[in-house]
Design a protein around this nucleic acid. Structure first.
Lengths: 202, 202
DNA sequence: CCAAGGGTTAAACAAATGATTAAATCATTT
DNA sequence: AAATGATTTAATCATTTGTTTAACCCTTGG
């Protein structure tokens, strides 16, 4: 679905539209983004948007699918891989999420908000994305002498990594962390996640 | 600002509008909510909305101020009170937030999303809400032999309490926790927060 | 009693918005 | 170069949307 062009080839019209729509939808949400804005941002004619994607809604679904996948692919394959130890899992996910979210700060709040506001849209997208990792994690938790449940383990892991990004406006405007220090803040936290996870779970 | 009427007196027109707007804005966001919907939900004539509030935006700001305050008043006064021990603080905040968010699940994601999407709006609202609690917490962390920084302490506390609500759609649709079990899930977590916080911070 | 004024209403307005159309242009094949 | 299909464009359409207007109630104070 994704074509990463190594060189300088100009984007196709379709790619330009997706890129512009991606930026605007994640910045301002579905309803606040106007098709004319997308066209302008993509530097194409309004009619092209409907020519390629049929409607604003279909374009939106493409973007959501894309962004949701960015968020899930960091987690799903690693969690369910039996050959990866629990420590490696936590370290890798912490590392990958921190890096991803520093580059796309608006990603988690966009997805979580849209998922709340527009639940039906996600029904078909996530139909086959159930968490098949449960038994694997369960086994590894026992091996590590951790007495916590799988849901608590996952919730704690994601909380400690992702919440800072979701609550960034609150954290920054409260003066808790300076805007310019935010990257350092989350990078420092990233290095402590495994320690915290082991302590929490004994 | 808030009038809690004990009895059966019918809501004033102004109250009916705020109530309807509150519901719709938090459910669907600013742009997706139409003034005609608010009027219909409030069972009043459309023109009354502008008669009482001047514009959709002014009405929206009222709602945001209200909801933001609901979210902050649970935390701010308790955190900065020197007479409340650290354990009491954590326990009380965990208790109060869990209860508040079970009753208003849409609250945190609404505020955090609007804060991201519509940052300028929050500038004046939060101008005087800086976190004056820092020195108090710092002292209490030392007294409890905790080596963590204040920002990490607050981030961990809020993460462990609030993230489940923010990420509820993800947690539920992944099959991690059943919809019907969600309240039990967060209530069980609530009871462990203080234990977790002490372990994390040694 | 009635005029004044706040509260309420239906109707209308202008701008915006998502979508469509039909014609023009471009690139590729015959 | 003619033909064909894909791409691009400007113009237009039909609704929607936030706001305003002007008339109409209904209570109340002089």
């Amino acid at each position: 679905m994704r074509f990463k062009t190594k060189g300088m080839e100009p984007l196709t019209t379709e790619q330009k539209i997706i890129k512009a729509a991606s930026k605007l939808f994640t910045q301002k949400g579905y309803a606040a983004t106007k098709t004319r804005e997308i066209a302008e941002e993509a530097d194409i004619n309004l009619a092209l948007l409907n020519y390629y994607f049929g409607s604003k809604e279909r374009l939106y679904k493409e973007v959501v699918k894309d962004k949701l996948w960015m968020l899930l692919e960091v987690m799903i394959p690693i969690l369910s891989d039996e050959k990866v130890s629990l420590e490696e899992k936590v370290m890798t996910i912490a590392e990958n999420y921190t890096q991803l979210l520093l580059e796309h700060e608006e990603l988690p709040i966009f997805i979580l908000n849209e998922w709340t506001v527009n639940e039906d849209l996600f029904v078909d997208i996530t139909r086959d994305a159930r968490l098949f990792a449960k038994p694997v994690i369960e086994k590894q938790l026992k091996e590590n002498g951790m007495k916590v449940s799988v849901p608590d383990f996952i919730a704690n892991l994601l909380s400690l990594i992702m919440f800072s990004f979701v609550a960034k406006p609150l954290i920054v405007s409260s003066g808790l962390v300076e805007e310019g220090e935010f990257a350092n803040f989350v990078n420092r936290r990233k290095g402590k996640i495994w320690e915290w996870m082991t302590k929490i779970n004994q």
